[in-house]
C-alpha cells in the first residue's frame, strides 16, 4: 500500500478500537499469550527445565559488555558496537563503563607489562560469572609485537579466556561471530577452560628472593602488590 493513500483506519471507521481486538482474537480463546516459546513447549502453561539451564540461557541472551579500549582493535570494536554492525542485535550491545556492571570483557589489544596488573584488577572487579573474549592476535599471543621486550604474550597469561578471535584486527563480523560463539557456549553451560596463569598479582614480600628482588627490595614495600614477569619462560 503506498503511503499517499489514506489508510482505512483513519478515514473509514469511527468504531471503538475494540473491534480490532475482536478481529484479532477471532473466535474462541484469546491466543495472544501464545508466544513462540509457549508453542515450543506445547499446550501446557508450565515449563519444565533445570534452573541451571534456564540461567545459562538467560546469561547468554543478555550480556553486558565492559567498555574497555586498549589498542587498534578497540577501533574495530567501536565499529562493531555502532551503526551497521550493531552488536546490540545480538543481545550484547550496551557497553558498561564500570567493571562492576559488566559480565563480558572483550580484550581488544596489546597488553604490556605496565598494563597487565591493571587489567587483572579490572577483571577481578567484575562480578561472577564473567567471561572474556580475546579480540585480535595481540591479546591472543602478543601478535605482531610478540618479540617486544615489554609485551605480555597474550591475555591468557594474566586472566582466563573463553574465546579467541584471530585477526589483526578482526573484522567486526568476526567479533560478532566470536560473541555469538560465546553465547552458544554459555547457553550450553560450558565453562571456560582452566588456564595456567603465569602472572599473578602477589605481595612483594611473598616473592622468592633472587637477584632482581634483592635489587628492588629498597624501593618496594613488602606489602605492595607486584607482578613478576619471567620473560624467559614466556611462550
Amino acid at each position: 500500500m503506498s503511503s499517499d493513500q489514506p489508510r482505512d483506519s483513519i478515514t473509514d471507521t469511527s468504531d471503538p478500537l475494540t473491534s480490532t481486538r475482536d478481529a484479532r482474537m477471532g473466535d474462541g480463546v484469546d491466543d495472544r499469550f501464545n508466544s513462540r516459546l509457549r508453542e515450543a513447549f506445547g499446550s501446557t502453561p508450565f515449563i519444565l527445565t533445570k534452573f541451571d539451564k534456564f540461567m545459562n540461557w538467560v546469561r547468554g541472551s543478555s550480556m553486558f559488555m565492559l567498555q574497555f579500549g586498549i589498542a587498534c582493535c578497540s577501533i574495530e570494536m567501536m565499529h562493531t558496537y555502532s551503526v551497521k554492525h550493531d552488536l546490540d542485535r545480538f543481545h550484547a550491545g550496551v557497553p558498561r563503563a564500570s567493571p562492576r556492571q559488566a559480565d563480558v570483557m572483550i580484550v581488544p589489544g596489546t597488553i604490556v607489562s605496565k598494563f597487565a596488573p591493571r587489567m587483572k584488577r579490572v577483571y577481578d572487579q567484575m562480578p561472577e560469572p564473567k567471561f572474556v573474549v580475546n579480540m585480535g592476535n595481540c591479546s591472543t599471543s602478543g601478535g605482531p609485537f610478540q618479540e617486544g621486550y615489554n609485551v605480555v604474550k597474550g591475555a591468557e597469561e594474566v586472566i582466563p579466556v573463553d574465546i579467541h578471535i584471530p585477526g589483526c584486527p578482526p573484522r567486526p563480523e568476526a567479533l560478532v561471530y566470536g560473541v555469538a560463539k560465546l553465547q552458544e557456549r554459555i547457553a550450553n553451560g560450558e565453562s571456560s577452560p582452566v588456564t595456567v596463569k603465569p602472572y599473578e598479582l602477589e605481595e612483594f614480600g611473598d616473592l622468592e628472593r633472587d637477584e632482581i628482588v634483592d635489587k628492588l627490595a629498597a624501593d618496594i614495600d613488602e606489602e605492595s602488590l607486584v607482578m613478576r614477569y619471567n620473560w624467559a619462560d614466556s611462550p
Binding site: P117, L216, A232
Partner: peptide, 25 residues
Amino acid sequence: LPDTWQGHPLGLDYNQNKPQIVTFD
C-alpha cells in the same frame, strides 16, 4: 616503562630475557 624496570631496552647490552617486576600501587 614502569618505574621499577631494570635496564634500558634500546641499549646495546640489554638482556630481554631477564625477569622484571612491576608494582601495582
